[in-house]
Amino acid sequence: MKPITFLHLLKNDVINILRDKTLLMMLVLPLLMIFGLKASLSALNELLPLLPNYYSLLLAILATTSALLGGYIIAFVMLDEKDENVFTVIRVMPFSISLFMAYRLLLAGFWAFCFAFLTFLVLDIQNYSLSEKLLYSIFCSQTSLVALLFIVTFANNKIEGITFIKAINFFSVLPALAFFIDSSWKHIFSVFPFYWTYRAIQEPNFLWILISIFSHFIIFLVGYYLFLRKIE
């Protein structure tokens, strides 16, 4: 893909995002969540005295949720293109669908990383170094790429896309329950990649980090394969 083609696609994407109220809301929502929590943190600490014990988990959940919005934004742009049969047009363009998807995934990953990093930067409630904040932001951004692929593959329009978003948000927060359960039942949540991301941030360990990356990578490959099959 030539640089001029990349810039043209980027310009169109920015215009589409800014002129769509739903996408613009998704762009602003992470800021509202991050700064809203920062403003209300003192009140929450008074209401929930044990909350400081779960700051790392709170950061991981909020960073993941914020990062997911980066994937949702690009997924909705692509759902509009799906309606306009853009993927059919790409087949006769001087670049492949794989290169086009690489651009879109990188763009989603960039937004996701920025939202996640902003979470750790603004909510500086843990003694994380800059390198830790960068690393954890990458962990929390992994899910956005997987979410993008599955939404674009299985949703036929934005209404269905919103349904997928609700389901993904629910299952992204669900594994957090494992850190409040003191029994063997908590291990059932380990089937979710989110769980390993949260655990890697809660209990920094090379094994948890590796499982988090590997589990997301496997699901990403499955999602990409299904996406390619769907547009054939």
Score class of each variant (00 low, 15 high):
residue 35 F to R: 03
residue 104 R to F: 01
residue 194 F to M: 13
residue 15 I to M: 04
residue 42 S to R: 02
residue 160 E to H: 05
residue 158 K to P: 03
residue 162 I to K: 09
residue 86 V to N: 09
residue 22 T to F: 15
residue 91 R to I: 10
residue 214 F to K: 04
residue 196 W to M: 09
residue 60 A to F: 04
residue 3 P to Q: 13
residue 89 V to H: 12
residue 185 W to V: 12
residue 49 P to T: 12
residue 204 P to R: 10
residue 18 L to P: 06
residue 166 K to M: 13
residue 230 K to A: 12
residue 67 A to H: 00
residue 152 V to W: 02
residue 49 P to H: 14
residue 165 I to R: 14
residue 228 L to R: 15
residue 67 A to L: 02
residue 138 I to C: 06
residue 47 L to E: 13
residue 15 I to H: 05
residue 124 D to I: 06
residue 129 S to W: 01
residue 218 I to E: 06
residue 75 A to T: 03
residue 121 L to A: 01
residue 197 T to S: 14
residue 13 D to N: 11
residue 159 I to K: 13
residue 157 N to M: 01
residue 100 F to G: 09
residue 3 P to G: 08
residue 72 Y to G: 02
residue 105 L to C: 00
residue 167 A to L: 10
residue 39 A to Q: 14
residue 221 L to P: 06
residue 153 T to H: 09
residue 125 I to P: 00
residue 94 P to V: 01
residue 8 H to E: 14
residue 57 L to E: 03
residue 89 V to Q: 12
residue 219 I to P: 00
residue 25 M to D: 00
residue 55 Y to C: 04
residue 211 I to R: 14
residue 84 E to D: 14
residue 9 L to A: 08
residue 32 L to A: 15
residue 221 L to S: 11
residue 108 A to F: 01
residue 204 P to T: 10
residue 15 I to L: 10
residue 203 E to Q: 12
residue 211 I to E: 11
residue 176 A to I: 08
residue 193 P to G: 07
residue 107 L to Y: 10
residue 157 N to Y: 04
residue 55 Y to I: 07
residue 80 D to Q: 11
residue 177 L to F: 08
residue 185 W to L: 15
residue 82 K to R: 10
residue 128 Y to V: 05
residue 42 S to Y: 10
residue 81 E to W: 10
residue 189 F to G: 04
residue 149 L to V: 12
residue 7 L to S: 09
residue 60 A to P: 02
residue 214 F to R: 03
residue 181 I to Y: 03
residue 206 F to I: 15
residue 226 L to F: 10
residue 173 V to K: 08
residue 9 L to F: 12
residue 49 P to M: 12
residue 176 A to K: 07
residue 164 F to W: 15
residue 163 T to L: 08
residue 151 I to V: 13
residue 195 Y to M: 09
residue 81 E to K: 13
residue 154 F to K: 11
residue 64 T to I: 02
residue 109 G to Y: 03
residue 83 D to T: 10
residue 220 F to E: 06
residue 74 I to T: 08
residue 142 Q to Y: 15
residue 103 Y to T: 01
residue 29 L to V: 13
residue 80 D to M: 07
residue 29 L to M: 15
residue 95 F to Q: 09
residue 210 L to S: 12
residue 50 L to I: 15
residue 229 R to G: 00
residue 168 I to M: 05
residue 80 D to A: 11
residue 42 S to K: 11
residue 146 V to C: 04
residue 185 W to M: 12
residue 116 A to M: 09
residue 115 F to Q: 03
residue 129 S to N: 08
residue 213 I to E: 01
residue 13 D to G: 05
residue 119 T to F: 02
residue 184 S to N: 13
residue 55 Y to S: 13
residue 227 F to Q: 09
residue 87 F to V: 09
residue 140 C to L: 06
residue 227 F to R: 10
residue 37 L to I: 11
residue 45 N to D: 13
residue 229 R to I: 11
residue 125 I to C: 01
residue 186 K to C: 06
residue 5 T to P: 03
residue 199 R to N: 14
residue 134 L to I: 15
residue 220 F to Q: 01
residue 227 F to D: 05
residue 102 A to F: 03
residue 114 C to K: 07
residue 89 V to C: 04
residue 28 V to Y: 06
residue 91 R to N: 12
residue 7 L to I: 11
residue 93 M to E: 11
residue 158 K to D: 03
residue 105 L to D: 05
residue 213 I to G: 01
residue 135 L to M: 15
